[in-house]
């Protein structure tokens, strides 16, 4: 799986990706190729470059070297086939808007300049809210939602993008157990529809239960493959150093 065979068009193909902040490497020469219909977790210690990897794939940060291909072309071209869930902490939840409005933002990429979201867009947003079990909170000011509910709103916003490839940055952070279960159910549903979902995750305990593929990252790519094959003692030691013993128990 290190090098893809040239025939099928893969949802995500990253070659030799290097990212640096002020000449300090955050990601070094990362390769990966993800098949369609994969539910992939990116795991690694803090500062391993997990979020950076996603952001680099989405073209949000400059890369020092490397190439990202989404369904065989650059991200800029395939943008409408990609959905994104940023970290929940990345926005000010006191912003004056309600849940439905945030979800409608997911349609902005399809709308184009000067166009206002219309009834169809709002209906789609409502459907997405329904799907994440948040329909009754559609008109609720976003600061009055719990952490789990805010995360669901973000998820609904990505769903409304109607993408084939999703990037999600820590969608389980700060959510309650019930939300976590319903989110993972949703992700598995997406996968069964042939969508590809890439999730930054930090809980090794639930990894096997939730995901089928996993990329272990610590500045460099330590391993990529089915969860069972990746979670070896040696790999974990390489990713987490001395802390892995504690994490394995």
């Amino acid at each position: 799986m290190t090098k893809p065979s040239p025939s099928p068009i893969l949802p995500l193909e990253v070659t030799d990706l290097t990212v640096a902040y002020h000449e300090k490497p955050v990601l070094w020469d990362v390769d990966c190729a993800i098949d369609e219909g994969t539910l992939l977790a990116i795991v690694g210690p803090n500062g391993a470059g997990k979020s950076t990897f996603i952001k680099a794939c989405l073209g949000l940060i400059p890369t020092a070297a490397g190439r990202v291909k989404v369904f065989g072309k650059t991200y800029a071209v395939q943008r409408k086939r990609v959905g994104y869930v940023p970290q929940r902490e990345s926005v000010d939840w006191d912003f004056p808007t309600h849940a439905l409005d945030v979800v409608t933002m997911g349609r902005y990429g399809h709308l184009g300049w000067f166009m206002r979201p219309g009834k169809t867009d709002r209906d789609m947003a409502m459907d997405a809210l329904e799907k994440v079990g948040m329909a009754e909170f559609a008109r609720r000011q976003i600061s009055q939602l719990s952490g789990g509910q805010q995360q669901r709103v973000f998820l609904a916003r990505a769903l409304v993008q109607d993408a084939d490839l999703y990037f999600m940055d820590e969608p389980f952070s700060g959510v309650d157990a019930a939300t976590e279960r319903s989110i993972i159910q949703l992700l598995q549903e997406l996968r069964s529809k042939g969508k590809t979902v890439i999730v930054v995750h930090h809980d090794l305990q639930t990894l096997k239960e939730y995901f089928d593929w996993c990329m272990l990252l610590n500045v460099r790519r330590i391993a990529l493959g089915p969860v069972d094959e990746v979670l070896t003692k040696e790999n974990l030691h390489r990713a987490y150093g001395g802390r892995s013993a504690f994490l394995r128990s």
Partner: peptide, 26 residues
Amino acid sequence: VARDRKWVFACYTLGVHLLHHEGTPE
């Protein structure tokens, strides 16, 4: 300084890349 470092860093990036694939079929 940044300009100097940029070249050095680019060199290292290339180095990491080469080392990474050393001895592999590709």
